[in-house]
């Protein structure tokens, strides 16, 4: 695998494996590409910045899922639960006078993380189909709770009246979405740095171990359940940040932020981009959103059919997603 970091060496060299491994986490040039694209898009497409911010929020959301599913191997249909918790937390804070956006992000992350830790502690005692159903149950229960608590959340009408203070007390959120775009880009950058560090840390490697061989992880004395719950809670907190960004940048929270549909959509985004590769989210989310935009214009009624067909094609012919196809091409070129 080329991305994200090469840890194998096909040809022997004088360098000892210890030194080779020690520098394996160095930043590669291609890891900067998403940020070059984000900066370029800001300059080239000034009228699409609001859409750009939404794309970055979905990238962040998919990245949080990649930590859980791609690295720890926990398949979930309920990841939108944490996106929704983050969105409602940020929205309710703003509605009740806490309009400072950055601190609200931290609070949203903490609340979503706690919900993730509690639900993860319970659902991660199961595996396979039972786990899938339980994660689905969590998102459905929270969705219904938000619906019933209409006096607090706005219910089916959505949460309105979100007012934010200027970012850092200086930059007011503008109609063109410039501040929102930069805000989302900076938050995504910080989260990417964190996740990159996490997945290459001993903790992250042990998550890969859990995904690769659970029996072996038990046999080397790893506290498997605790590691999985920790990863689940961190992924939930990051999804909460994505949800909070959504609430802050759109100044509205609809019930569908906490839905099975959104859980499914983010799963499709990640599969399209490539699971367990850190950068699958950066490709899958924009690809999904562009495809959704184009297909819904071409075929307003049955556009989701085409998304489904795209997913079937990827699963059957490009199992590693876009990055997987890139890998195959890269290896063929090298030969």
């Amino acid at each position: 695998m080329v991305l994200p970091l090469p840890l194998t060496r096909s040809k022997p060299t004088a360098e000892s494996p210890v030194e080779f491994m020690a520098r394996s986490h160095r930043l590669r040039w291609y890891e900067l590409l998403p940020w070059v694209v984000a900066a370029g898009a800001f300059l080239v497409y000034p009228s699409y910045l609001a859409l750009g911010a939404q794309v970055m929020i979905m990238v962040l959301f998919a990245l949080s899922l990649d930590l859980i599913m791609g690295y720890a191997g926990i398949v979930t249909l309920g990841h939108a639960a944490f996106f929704g918790v983050g969105a409602y937390t940020a929205g309710l804070l703003a509605v009740h006078g806490w309009g400072e956006p950055i601190s609200a992000l931290f609070v949203s992350a903490a609340v979503a993380g706690v919900v993730g830790a509690i639900s993860g502690y319970i659902v991660l005692r199961t595996t396979g189909l039972t786990l899938l159903m339980l994660t689905l149950a969590v998102v459905s229960m929270l969705n219904e709770a938000a619906n019933k608590a209409g006096s607090i959340t706005g219910g089916a009408d959505g949460l309105q009246g979100i007012t934010l203070q200027p970012l850092l007390g200086l930059f007011r959120f503008d109609l063109y979405g410039r501040v929102a775009y930069i805000y989302c880009a900076l938050v995504l950058f910080a989260v990417w740095l964190l996740v990159r560090l996490l997945v290459h840390s001993p903790f992250g490697r042990s998550l890969t171990g859990v995904r690769e061989n659970l029996v072996r992880m038990h046999a080397i004395g790893a506290p498997v359940h605790r590691r999985m719950v920790t990863a689940y809670a961190i992924g939930a907190a990051l999804a909460g940040i994505a949800g909070a960004l959504q609430a802050q940048t759109t100044q509205f929270v609809a019930l569908n932020v906490m839905s099975f549909d959104l859980s499914g959509a983010v799963l499709i985004m990640l599969i399209l981009g490539g699971v367990g590769r850190l950068y699958g989210a950066f490709l899958g989310a924009p690809l999904y959103m562009v495809a959704q935009d184009m297909l819904s214009r071409l075929d307003p009624v049955y556009w989701f059919f085409w998304i489904g067909l795209l997913l079937v094609m990827v699963v059957m012919f490009a199992r590693g997603g876009v990055l997987g196809v890139g890998d195959v091409i890269w290896h063929r070129l090298k030969k």
Partner: peptide, 14 residues
């Protein structure tokens, strides 16, 4: 894992 460092999150594994 044996050294109790496998839960470390904020430094690179290698």
């Amino acid at each position: 894992e044996h050294r109790g460092r496998a839960g470390d999150m904020f430094r690179y594994a290698f």
